[in-house]
Write a protein that binds this DNA or RNA. Structure first.
Lengths: 118, 118
DNA sequence: TCGATATTTCGATATTTATAGAATTATTGG
DNA sequence: CCAATAATTCTATAAATATCGAAATATCGA
């Protein structure tokens, strides 16, 4: 994964409606959701939703697949995992990440509070 | 972590220079790097770098701390972990995530062996 | 206090992005 | 083929963001 696609993915997620849509798709799992269902659930006009979905697709975060008249979108989990890996790559310069540094990807629970770092 | 701060964090990372700066800070570990060092390493004017660093700080992705004339920035790993957790929350609607669905958050661990994580 | 260093704030400009109605394209059922 | 449905592309406008030089703000050493 190169910087360019990573930036596109992050930019795609950095928007209220797209983040919400992406999360709905994550929760929907492999079955995905139709564009219209997303549009209606989120209260976003169809043309706007389409614009947002194309950003997500362009960033490879979601896949699309026609099913009759609908177009079903689904989250690409591999892309998300690659994104996370990219951002924490070579964490702490190779020094083993201890709980002390806090640099333990995915080890910390979301709310672990760590205040002062030397 | 609420949607608002998540979007700010994603937007902060969705920019060439800021993503590069953040990655340098991740690699630098708890010791961090001075604003000037980041500016010079990335070939970005000081005023621009300052603008970008304030975006990262505003999103709580980095911390800053004055050390004599320099201001040392360092990555906040807890914030990054929270970010990832938010995006994969309630993945597949609670159905156990198998390798088949690909929906296994944090399956890729950058540099350290993962002990058993719940 | 003065001069040098490190960084941030200001200001003006250029670029990118979001929005949503209208028109267009694709698919299905009768 | 036609009407209905589902989605996308087009178009215009509004809003947010990036850029970087110049000026301002801290801090230090002599």
């Amino acid at each position: 994964m190169d910087a360019e696609i990573v930036i596109r993915a992050l930019a795609a997620l950095a928007q209220e409606h797209r983040l919400a849509a992406y999360r709905l798709l994550v929760q929907a799992g492999p079955e995905g959701m139709a564009a219209g269902a997303l549009s209606e659930t989120l209260g976003v006009p169809a043309s706007s939703m389409s614009f947002h979905l194309s950003q997500l697709a362009n960033a490879r975060l979601v896949q699309q697949q026609r099913q009759s008249r609908s177009i079903i979108y689904s989250a690409d989990f591999a892309a998300m995992n690659a994104l996370m890996a990219y951002m924490t790559e070579n964490c702490c310069g190779g020094v083993p990440c201890t709980a002390d540094t806090g640099c333990t990807p995915a080890a910390a629970s979301p709310s672990s509070a760590r205040k002062d770092v030397a």
